[in-house]
Measured scan of single mutants.
Amino acid sequence: FDIYVVTADYLPLGAEQDAITLREGQYVEVLDAAHPLRWLVRTKPTKSSPSRQGWVSPAYLDRRL
C-alpha cells in the first residue's frame, strides 16, 4: 500500500459515515483511492492506539516516497 502523511488535522463532519479523525504528521496507508473525494486509509498502530481504518479527504494527504 502507498504511504501518505497527513498535512493538517482532519476532523470529519458528523454526517460522514466511516470517517476517522487524523492528526497532522500522522502516517497512513491508502487502501482505496478509486473515489476522487474520499479515500479509504488505515492508520499505523502506536503503543497507545491500535490501527484504525476509515474514509478521509485526499486533500489532507501528501504522498511519501
Score class of each variant (00 low, 15 high):
R52C: 07
S49G: 09
Y10D: 02
K44E: 09
I3W: 15
S51I: 09
Y27V: 13
L31G: 00
F1V: 08
G54W: 05
P12Q: 06
R23P: 03
R64P: 15
V6C: 10
Q53L: 11
P50G: 07
V5Q: 07
W55S: 02
P36E: 09
R63I: 12
A33K: 15
S49K: 09
D9N: 09
D32L: 07
A15K: 08
V28Y: 01
S48V: 10
S48I: 10
S51N: 03
R52I: 15
S49F: 11
P12G: 07
V6Y: 01
E29N: 04
G25D: 02
A15E: 14
V30K: 01
G25V: 01
L22H: 01
Y4T: 02
V41M: 01
P12Y: 06
W55V: 03
A59K: 11
I20W: 07
K47Q: 12
H35P: 03
S49Y: 10
K44I: 15
Y10V: 10
Q53E: 12
I20E: 03
R64T: 13
A15G: 14
T46C: 09
Y10W: 10
T46D: 11
D2H: 11
L37F: 11
D18V: 04
H35I: 04
Y4I: 02
E16S: 09
L37T: 11
E16V: 08
Q17D: 13
Y60M: 05
Q53P: 02
D9V: 04
Q17E: 14
S51P: 09
K47S: 13
I20F: 14
P50N: 06
H35E: 08
A59Y: 08
W39C: 03
P36T: 06
G14D: 15
Q17H: 13
L61A: 00
D9C: 05
S48Q: 12
I3T: 09
R52V: 15
R23W: 13
V30T: 02
A8Q: 13
R63D: 06
A59C: 10
W39V: 01
A19C: 08
D62A: 15
R64I: 15
I20M: 08
W39G: 00
Y10R: 03
V30W: 01
A59V: 11
D9K: 06
P58S: 08
P45N: 06
Y27W: 13
K44P: 10
G25L: 02
A33H: 08
E24I: 14
L65S: 13
V30N: 00
A59F: 09
A19W: 14
G54D: 02
D9E: 06
S51K: 04
S49T: 12
V5H: 04
R42T: 03
V30E: 00
A19D: 08
R64W: 15
Q17P: 14
R23I: 10
E24D: 04
